[in-house]
Amino acid sequence: MKIICLVKFTPDVDQFQYDYEKNILIRENVKLVINPDDACALGFALGLKKKTPEVVIEAVTMGPLNVTAMMADILRRKVDLATILSDRQYVGSDTYATSRIIGKYLETADYDVILTGSHSRDGDTAQIPGQLAEYLKLNQISQIRKIDQPSMLNKRALVEVDSEKYLETYEIPLPAILSVGRESNYRLPFVRYDDLDLDVSDRLRIIDNDSLAVDSKKIGLKGSPTKVIKSYPIDYQKKEQVIVKNDDQGIDMVMAFLEKEGYL
């Protein structure tokens, strides 16, 4: 079985520091990390591969070449193949153009199932998996909390989906696009100590638009129909900090706080 996992690298927003005086995010030294939902999808795939070593996983990303080191790390986590779709012409692509680029690559790729995350953390977008499904004429489902491992191997995936009101179970014939949510808690394994410096260059491919040949009018800013009307930073409120003593009064304050917030 061959699984393609789509991954995107986003700024680690949990690590952002906020300058409350100037009301801006401090972006210096913020690392790029795998989008958490994508990490769960990849985590599931690697879990399946651990049990069924014949499973082959390819990770695919579209982005600038500075993601190469992170894709190499994905290979060191026991992914078989990594593909980076990268070209200066892709810069500024909205989700529609991005789907077209990735779709063009996937058209020619070999797979039994495509796994993605449900949401992208940086822009809070969730369109790519649906748009890709449209492009590739595949079924697609989002907000997956659980995928039944054996069903994947039987080519009819049983998935549990969080539809906000209910947990629903669907059976989907493969190939399909399965989009996993963070709540699935599938854990992406770390690079093992012995593999920290493993040379993975022979398993990492970079594909530009000369090879992919997407119509240049349909990519980048000019190929992107989305127009941003307004964007605004989130206004974080500084949390009040109260330091209490380790005495009866301090303990009472903590208890009262926990009760007020509904923890007790």
Partner: peptide, 11 residues
């Protein structure tokens, strides 16, 4: 701890 528990003391 950004590693597997087996590797923590080594890393």
């Amino acid at each position: 701890i950004n590693c597997e528990p087996e590797d923590e003391f080594r890393m």
